[in-house]
Amino acid sequence: MIVIVDSLNAHEHSDLLIKMHQLRAQVFSGRLGWDVKVIDGMERDEFDELDPAHVVSVDDEGRVVGCMRLLQTTGPHMLTDVFSCLLDGEPPLRSARVWEATRFCVDTNLPGRGIARNSISYVTSEVMIGAFEYGIAAGISDAVAVIDPVMNRVMKRSGNAPYGYLGSPHAMGKVTALAALMDCSDERIARIREFSGIHHDVFNVSVPEVIRK
């Protein structure tokens, strides 16, 4: 299921936040080899101090298996600063109705395969559905997401292809990173749901029996 954790409810979800920062360390420092700060097995940066919202995917055993961090593009965000190289030195876009998604990752040690529950593809879709539904309720029309080519391929294959890109891909650690554009729309959510077979409310704990199997 998906839990939105922000500075308003962080005190209720301190264990989820720890697990999320551990997953981020494992993915960004470990697998992707990005130059990120890891302290006590947790990856954190200065943007975590700016009251972002985290879209956190939690499995049936209470493990954090995927996450994404959201910030408003009207204020300080990663493309204005750390990721400005991705925009080839151009100023980033700024809009009341566009959010920036960064630190999007999924636990690649998941046992499931294909679109089975607990597969990489399932969790990717679940995080995306959660983020887009949260965005639509907030009046958001589009998102700009910093992603790696693997994530880009997973998204293209799961009914969730970006409609465009900003700037150009740049090397970052072991892989390249790119700034992808996605509409925050009912149509996109419907496509992701269709592909992944996720038809239940992702914010609700109870998952239908058929999907649990």
């Binding site: 109705r97 029309s141 589009d142 465009g164 509409d183």
Partner: peptide, 10 residues
């Protein structure tokens, strides 16, 4: 055209 739209929005 959606990319055009996001540039206009911004």
């Amino acid at each position: 055209h959606r990319t055009v739209e996001i540039h206009l929005r911004s």
